[in-house]
Write a protein that binds this DNA or RNA. Structure first.
Lengths: 205, 205, 205, 205
DNA sequence: AATGAATGAGCCTTCATTCAT
DNA sequence: GATGAATGAAGGCTCATTCAT
């Protein structure tokens, strides 16, 4: 696991891994640096050689996944890409849901940490407001409008359509990864089901 | 706010209120008892006269809302009640969503605390497993089946229908109360919209 | 047990009894007033209505037994009394040992407390120096000299004879009452044995 | 003073010394860790780097002298040693008394602490029951029996003879070291006196 | 006389962080 | 780079004591 190592020493990696485990298990402020050190098998001081403070260690774990989360949306011509690649809105939904699902499954614990700590760390909320919202919302909105113009979507405020779609997708991802991760999920089937639901609701025919 | 006061002294109420504020703002373990005391305008010792430990104080705040959350579902003949009262599934959804929305709006900060701390406190998870799941899931499932038999709902596993419906409703409640509480929401309209979405999805016609 | 009640209220007696138990079990400073209150079945405040401080409560328990301990020796004409009453030194020893033994058995726990706390409370040490030593040592010394003059005792410094005699007697009392109180002691026999030992040692004639 | 230093840091030694002083002066539970730290000239946290708890610090001081106390008796062939080395019981007594006296004089304050705290710490009582009694009583009893068989001692239960002898010796040691340490004691003379007393009592000729 | 809520000082312990080695 | 002893501030909690009722 750990972070994209680049020039990390082996101890540094062990520290990060230990920190992720601990933060995910007990939360940021209930985790002590000495506990991280112990779990990583390094001396207490070693942590502070690499990260000036506990918070810096925390941010170094959590910040990259915000960036990674945003990355796919900020590709130049993201909009165009989708326009060409996906013939219909359901295709688009399917792609996004699959993509997000793998993302969460790859970065599970860190995302858990992130979700839990966002309300308590101004820096994180800031990053969200500055990066995630504008970078992600814009492109998606354009896509929504695009499909609305093609008559594939009902005529509601794009933000509303986004919220509804995200609710359903997030609902699945959270149930699947955090609430009942031990169930035997058939992701393909469930993705399809979620997409169908978003498109047609629960009424028969 | 505070808890149903009953025989609480005035200081006790101030302690609870201060604790709710602090826990909601910084999380359980980042909140110190001295901070709570200061905010409540009491001596630190006073807290421990009423609650043996910090955790007991915490649970005394959070446990009652779990009970309150479950309460409406455990009314005897809950199932029958709905069967008679609500002619159609949309009616039922509307009622539930409105009800939960008021519940969250009344107990906002405590629910925020609860949501955040559940993963870190075995006792809470226990209570959820023992009370919420069995007491709530059963009755709802019967209702779902009832409407399926009347042909108003597609033929999927009730648990799936529940998950999808909850996703949409929770999506609204969370956005409405926690993410963008400052928007000028028209609850009636949004409830209607959510219900329509659950029933018919996003396809036009 | 409790102290000679005089005008003590029932609660006061319960407080004293509880305090004696607690002090004997855990020592003065490891015992909390709240614990005493609980054990006595009174409110915390009640203790302080009768005794201004914890220490005053403590002294009110421990001081009287110092007085009681000294009492038999300060009877006027104590010396004369013994001279007339006891024909020989062994008679005297027997009387003293029996007397002290009953004294300890009657005031067991308080004496235990006293012994333990003497080194830590200047007031107590003071009382000892002022009352016990002078009042007790003088009379006894006169008796020793008396028997030495009658040729019943070897010619050593009276203080040494006292020390040796006390060692043996205290050795029995302590073993009997504190170290092995559960043994089936035959006090009469043991008293005799101690007296014989003091007089003739361990050599077989 | 301090404990056999081995690999102790200088600060650790200062902590132990300070703790011994404090415990001896005020007793275990009346001594605060902050006081020990102050006396040792260390930060309070430093104490807990070396000893997990106050109690562990306490035991690390007191446990070794129990071991040291027992040590001389558990030499292999202790019994035989004495049989050969000491021609008579008085020789044996003299040796033991001298030995114990030096032991107490070397470990004065710690023994004081030990004596005071034994009744309040289950762990210590345990150690006594497990180590001191069996290891010490057995060998001594064999020696007593040996001298009884040689006709040098009266025919009483060995445990009684032990108790009487110990009373006299302990009486001297305690008076000498704790009650009147400032007297000008002539140890050689007093040891001889105690031995003579044990053997022949107080009767002239 | 008795209560028990309230207090704030002080307790033992843990924390994040520093720094000499 | 890595260590771990050392720190002092702060943490949760208990204490003896006070006081309005």
């Amino acid at each position: 696991m750990s972070e994209d190592d680049e020039k990390m020493t082996e101890k540094q990696i062990r520290i990060i891994d230990a920190a992720v485990e601990s933060f995910a298990q007990k939360g940021y402020s209930a985790t002590s640096t000495s506990e991280i050190a112990k779990r990583a098998g390094v001396a207490e001081g070693t942590i502070f050689r690499h990260y000036k403070t506990k918070k810096e260690l925390f941010l170094s774990i959590v910040t990259p996944v915000i960036a990674k989360f945003v990355a796919p949306f900020v590709l130049r011509d993201f909009y165009q890409l989708f326009e060409e690649q996906y013939e219909s809105f359901p295709d688009f939904l399917r792609a996004v849901l699959r993509n997000r699902l793998t993302f969460v499954m790859k970065n599970g614990p860190v995302i858990k940490i992130l979700l839990h700590e966002i309300p308590f760390h101004e820096e994180l909320r800031q990053q969200f407001k500055e990066q995630v919202f504008p970078q992600v919302a814009g492109p998606i909105e354009r896509i929504i409008v695009h499909f609305q113009e093609r008559g594939e979507l009902i005529d509601l405020a794009p933000s509303t359509l986004i919220r509804l779609s995200i609710s359903v997708m997030a609902g699945y991802i959270i149930t699947r990864c955090y609430i009942l991760p031990d169930n035997a999920w058939d992701d393909e089937k469930e993705v399809e089901l979620a997409v169908q639901f978003i498109m047609h609701g629960l009424s028969p025919t």
